[in-house]
Amino acid sequence: MDFLRKALLPVGCALLQTVSVGTGLPDRSPGSAAVAALLGIASGLALFARARAPFIALAATVVGYVAQLLVGGPALPVAVSVMVFVVGRGYTIEGSSPEHSPTWRAGALLGALLGVVAPLQVAGLGFEAAAYGLMCSVSGAAGLLVALKSGRDQQRRTELVMAERLRIARELHDVVGHGMGAITVQAGAARMAVAVGALDDATASLRDIEAAGRSVLREVRWLVTLLREEEHHGLRDLPDLVGNARRSGLDVTLEVDGDLGDVPAAAGEAAYRIVQEALTNVLRHAPGKEAEVAVRVADTLELEILDRGEAVGPASDVEEGNGLRGMRERAVSAGGVLSAGRTSTGRWAVHAELPLGRS
């Protein structure tokens, strides 16, 4: 099936470029008609190489078209137009290898356009030259627009990843700095307690040192896991995220209602990042290090992350930091809404609702 899908475009172009050859011209000899048909088929089948060798395939379609024109008359340059789009779509401003540089691609596109228009103009077929030149130009422009959008999307993804890594690096610095500061203070207190013979106070300080060390190790392990992640994630990766949180010392449960695979990529990635940030906040700030994650996939995607630890502070005590703002921005970017705060029992809860784009 995969081969048939890949063969559909080359075969279709071959047929179009074959049946359209010499349209409107006087009858040709059987020999020239047969040769023109074979050239049209060859031009179309050259598209099989469009992914592996786009420039070679482009050159082959142009040569095939010109030869077809000389033998049997003008034909629709559908194969050339497809390859102009493919080459234009691969245009990049940065990071191109020398053989695929922007200058090389621009030259190839211009050469293909001239290869279609010039022979028609020389043959006195001005109308066909204008029409087919416009056809190739539109195909090339469409490819360049797709490349431009792809480049912008890639740049935005890179910026988001860099911002995420910078945030995690700052949190890592804060975690290590705070933890090591506490350990240093308690170590000094233990030393002074031992010096005056207060062994009970020294033991208490050592316990505090142990607790601070475990807390630092737990948070560092979690943050290092985040740094090792790939760029894109979806809801299918949510069980792995929860597993990493458990290995980092968080007692977390996951409840799923619906098919995680039935969620669009944009909503899935936003939901994944919201859960990730919520678990990070529980790990860093919740006293009990316990959480519940509930996901419901229906007409919309609903998320709820609840801190099951001991209630601390009044229900109205809500402080919005960078993590909560980031979660809210993730939800808004996916067209949804997010609310966070303490429940009536004093537990911290994050609730998000994201659209699935269904009519």
Score class of each variant (00 low, 15 high):
Ala7Asn: 09
Pro10Tyr: 14
Gly12Val: 07
Gln17Ser: 05
Arg28Asp: 11
Ser43Cys: 11
Leu58Pro: 14
Val66Lys: 01
Val66Trp: 13
Leu69Tyr: 02
Leu70Asp: 05
Pro74Phe: 06
Pro74Gln: 03
Ala79Gln: 00
Val86Ala: 09
Val87Asp: 04
Glu94Leu: 12
Gly95Asp: 13
His100Phe: 13
Ser101Tyr: 13
Ala106Asp: 04
Val116Tyr: 12
Val116Trp: 11
Ala118Leu: 15
Leu125Asn: 09
Glu128Thr: 04
Glu128Ser: 07
Ala129Thr: 04
Gly133Arg: 09
Met135His: 14
Cys136Met: 06
Val138Ala: 14
Ala142Asn: 11
Leu144Phe: 15
Arg167Lys: 02
Ala169Asn: 12
Arg170Val: 08
Glu171Gln: 15
Val175Lys: 00
Ala187His: 09
Ala189Lys: 14
Ala189Met: 15
Ala189Val: 15
Arg191Lys: 10
Met192Asp: 06
Ala198Cys: 03
Asp200Lys: 12
Ala202Arg: 13
Arg214Ser: 07
Arg218Thr: 11
Arg228Pro: 04
Gly234Leu: 09
Asp237Pro: 08
Leu241Ser: 01
Arg246Glu: 15
Arg247Leu: 13
Gly249Gln: 01
Gly249Asp: 05
Asp251Ala: 12
Val256Gln: 06
Gly258Thr: 03
Gly268Leu: 04
Ala271Cys: 08
Ala271Lys: 05
Ala271Glu: 08
Ile274Glu: 01
Ala278Asn: 05
Pro287Asp: 02
Ala291Tyr: 05
Glu310Met: 03
Val312His: 06
Val318Thr: 07
Glu319Trp: 01
Leu324Thr: 08
Arg325Lys: 10
Met327Asn: 01
Arg328Ser: 08
Ala331Thr: 07
Ala334Phe: 01
Gly335Ala: 02
Val337Glu: 14
Gly346His: 03
Arg347Val: 00
Gly357Lys: 06
